[in-house]
């Protein structure tokens, strides 16, 4: 018995995943859409992204210095927050407003609640909503080729959901992304490439995005402005085939314009602000989908993705409470009859 055994408690096998690793994958996955945004909107988009990222990293450093804590910028989450936030800006946003957004995201939404993992709301989205209230006109000043124009989503709302051949934007434009909008939201193609990277790297599971997009699409298909069950449209006497085509085109357009794709894959999948249970994640996705549907159809503004996601973020503790899985080996106790 001369050998000395080192005995330690579990876990003995560790995965190589680290926060830094995960965040790096998210950054890589956002690069395609960011590059497309820079190509589409010009050099100023790059400037905005850099400024916002720097603002986020600097805010985290300063906060940690003041609070006398270890600097946490090494986990790259501030960079991710900055990138997501910048991709949510219209390209014309003044730089100092973007910098304020970064400060609000990191200091108010993230660090004051205890830093990464403790924040109850997605920092980038919290800051976006702050800026949306603060600088409403700057935040919705969308430009292509130096002309202020309506986004496809606004146009869809204005035309009451009709996608006619004379519309400015067709489905193919929305798919490729040569439309006005925020820097990162326009290109469905590049967002899907990014999402594929995230899924392949096992950073996100498809539960939340699919539940989100699925519930949203179903609701839009049946109850949207051009949906199957809208009485005014049925009353015009169109046959079933036309109705079906109309509803599906409308649903596709709703899925491809605005920030829903970006939101579903990059913002609704944030670890800290979404449920950890599988059932809970599906519920969370449906919650986002229903809220986005309501905001887009009944709400006053065309877009509702960011508000839908942060409201769902707030519901996460409740969702987790009702989806607590049964512990292994525990027999369900029957409620006593009255």
């Amino acid at each position: 018995m001369s050998e000395l055994f080192h005995v330690s408690s579990a876990p003995h096998v560790r995965a190589k995943t680290s926060t830094q690793n995960v965040m790096l994958w998210v950054i890589i996955a956002m690069l395609p859409t960011a590059c497309f945004g820079i190509w589409n909107f010009g050099f100023r988009a790059l400037l905005l992204i850099v400024a916002t990222v720097l603002s986020c990293v600097a805010s985290e450093t300063v906060y940690n210095l003041i609070a006398k804590k270890k600097n946490t910028i090494g986990d790259l989450s501030a960079v991710v927050t900055g990138m997501i936030l910048a991709l949510n800006f219209p390209v014309t946003l003044p730089i100092w407003e973007a910098v304020i957004g970064g400060i609000v995201a990191i200091i108010v939404v993230k660090m004051l609640f205890g830093g990464l993992g403790q924040n109850f709301m997605n920092p980038a989205l919290g800051a976006r909503c702050f800026l949306l209230i603060a600088f409403t006109s700057d935040m919705s000043n969308f430009v292509t080729d130096a002309y202020s124009t309506a986004t496809p989503l606004a146009e869809l709302k204005a035309t009451n959901g009709i996608i006619a051949p004379w519309n400015k934007y067709q489905l193919t434009d929305m798919f490729i992304g040569t439309t006005p909008g925020t820097i990162g939201e326009t290109s469905v193609l590049f967002l899907l490439i990014g999402a594929a990277i995230l899924v392949a790297a096992k950073v996100i599971s498809l539960r939340i995005p699919l539940a989100y997009l699925g519930s949203f699409a179903v609701l839009m298909f049946f109850f949207g402005k051009r949906g199957m069950t809208i009485p005014e449209i049925a009353a015009t006497g169109v046959d079933f085939g036309t109705l079906f085509t109309q509803a599906s085109t409308y649903t596709l357009a709703q899925l491809m314009c605005g920030g829903i794709m970006f939101g579903a894959f990059f913002m609704a999948t944030d670890y800290a602000t979404t449920p950890i249970t599988k059932k809970g994640q599906i519920l969370f996705g449906i919650c986002c989908g229903v809220l986005t549907f309501l905001f887009r159809t009944i709400g006053g503004t065309p877009e509702g993705v960011s508000y839908a996601i942060i409201l769902s973020n707030l519901m996460v503790p409740l969702i987790e409470k009702i989806t607590v899985p049964r512990a292994f080996g525990v027999v369900k106790v029957k409620k006593e009859g009255k």
């Binding site: 003044p94 702050f130 603060a134 409403t136 700057d138």
Partner: peptide, 15 residues
Amino acid sequence: FTPIATFARAPGAFL
């Protein structure tokens, strides 16, 4: 300076 209108609204009061 563009005023940060959030502060004139309800969220600003809480903040």
